[in-house]
């Protein structure tokens, strides 16, 4: 049976850990037998600028970049950044969003306003079939390291996708430096627990 294509976009702010999360997603796809491609653009602004990773799973993937209106899962590390990508979501696709805001420079300079959560929710719901709010950064802080929020989000995604958790944990173990493995496993299970509770 041909594997169905699944497109993901991970959007956040430089320094939040989108790249590690997308690397994990890539390896999980490969292990699950998909053809996988990933695209991300880096260059200017190592810290504090908007960053995005695109991951595509499929039977045969040509372009590494996703197409507007075709993305199955939007993973938002930061609320404003995920809102920017809403047009890429396919109607009825899933959005998993970390309730965390990092006001961008125009907001701090007082020339723009950071939208309210309710406004963001309304925007996301114009396309989302399922919108999942997660306090991933809060969970990560509880675990003692805010950088774990990406792995918490991946845990939620794993529940949403309904895939073997061991597959994910195996990849996390391979990709994360040894002394952080235990913490990352913990972050992942906190995510899957949230996911399991909510996505029934």
């Amino acid at each position: 049976m041909a594997l169905e294509k699944i497109d993901f976009v991970l959007a956040g702010v430089g320094g939040q850990g989108t790249i590690l999360a997308s690397d994990i997603l890539v390896e999980v796809g490969l292990e699950a037998g998909y053809d996988v491609k990933k695209s991300e653009v880096h260059g200017m602004a190592q810290r504090g600028g908007g960053v995005e990773s695109q991951v595509r799973w499929g039977e045969k993937v040509y372009s590494a970049t996703v197409e507007k209106g075709e993305v199955d899962f939007l993973l938002g590390f930061e609320m404003l950044e995920v809102a920017r990508w809403i047009d890429f979501l396919k109607p009825g696709g899933d959005v998993i969003v970390n309730r965390y805001r990092i006001p961008p420079p125009p907001v701090n300079m007082g020339v723009a306003k950071y939208p309210d959560e309710s406004e963001i929710q309304r925007l996301l719901l114009t396309r989302a079939g399922r919108l999942v709010w997660v306090g991933a950064t809060d969970v990560a802080r509880e675990l003692g390291n805010a950088a774990l929020s990406g792995v918490v989000l991946l845990g939620v995604l794993a529940s949403d996708l309904g895939m073997e958790h061991d597959l994910w944990l195996g990849v996390i173990e391979r990709l994360v430096p040894e002394r952080f493995v235990a913490l990352n496993r913990e972050a992942f299970s906190r995510g899957t627990a949230i996911g399991a509770e909510m996505l029934v």
């Binding site: 920017r84 420079p105 925007l123």
Partner: peptide
Amino acid sequence: LLDPATLPGRPPMLCP
């Protein structure tokens, strides 16, 4: 309704 095209931008700036 918010317009994704006019959300406040996050242009690159010097790192912290």
